[in-house]
Design a protein around this nucleic acid. Structure first.
Lengths: 159, 159
DNA sequence: GCTCCAATTGCAAACGATTTGCAATTGGCG
DNA sequence: CGCCAATTGCAAATCGTTTGCAATTGGAGC
């Protein structure tokens, strides 16, 4: 069995209900289910995957709407692996989710890269170009250990 | 007038025709026009922008098909700024196009960042995780000098 | 220059991810 | 327990991109 690749954020429902209440939002059945599904996975998940995991307990449109809400509430972070679908990762409260991923081009398996290797590059880039509020988007792509043996073509995640 | 932000690759038509011929491809009117449009811009362009620049001289589907072809021929490089549309940049022969961009979140203006600041990070990431053939995708986002004065909300390119 | 045929194109329909309008449903505060 | 704004499901709409197909066109060979 492979080692766990993603930590599973706690799901402090009372605290979450609290955060919803503060914004006059409801902690509904579908939303609760989505949060659970997100925690189950730990890593980045596509809306469709969440939808499938929910087995009819919630509509796909609702998943999308919920992801938007959770994103604005800072409860999930959106990632883009360049394959045309968004991915969302549950965040611990207070975590800004700034880290990067290493994605297998064959099996789409995702490894979390610890720590942002680019701490001050944003600042350098900002200064060098007169920009403000510079952030970046960085993801790595490669072939994972399991896929290195298998012969060339598989599903391609990106590039 | 703003300084030019992107170098304009030469358009050595005879040489290009040569490269097409070698692959039994035709250097057609639409393709020639697309190449010219790409050179005009210099920087990353969306298929739709190319289409508009061509003013009916070629269908949008043809633009897409051409971009695929040019990409496989190594004549353009595809970039993803996370706003749901692809961008393509004309490459000089021999250039692998590996550089990054700084995109204004307000006006979508793009500045080229010289040199890849991540020369050996790919290798480090590969080794640390047992992956092979690791590459990365990195783009910066911020607010450009021109947009820093204008008050908050404008069109949002990403994030 | 002219022929011929594979490569290419335009057009319209198909697609897949995501968004939205709307009427029916539902949390949660009073 | 009731009310009402927030939310949901469903279907239709959007948007970027791809594809099927019949008509068109480069360019290699004559």
């Amino acid at each position: 069995m492979k080692p766990r690749k993603h930590r599973r954020a706690r799901l402090d429902l009372p605290r979450i209900a609290e955060r919803f209440r503060k914004k006059a939002r409801k902690l509904t059945g579908p939303r609760r289910a989505i949060l659970v599904a997100l925690r189950e996975r730990g890593g980045p998940v596509t809306p469709r995957e969440i939808f499938r995991a929910l087995e009819g307990r919630c509509d796909l449109a609702t998943v999308y709407r919920s992801m938007h809400l959770l994103e604005t509430m800072g409860m999930v972070k959106r990632y883009d692996f360049g394959d045309g679908q968004a991915r969302f990762e549950l965040l611990e409260e207070g975590d800004d989710g700034h880290h990067h991923h290493l994605v297998c081009r064959r099996c789409a398996d995702v490894v979390e890269i610890e720590g942002c290797l680019m701490s001050d590059v944003d600042r350098q880039v900002a200064e060098a170009n007169g920009f403000k509020a510079v952030t970046h988007r960085l993801e790595f792509f490669g072939i994972c250990p399991e896929c290195q043996g298998s012969d060339s073509r598989g599903e391609n995640v990106t590039d």
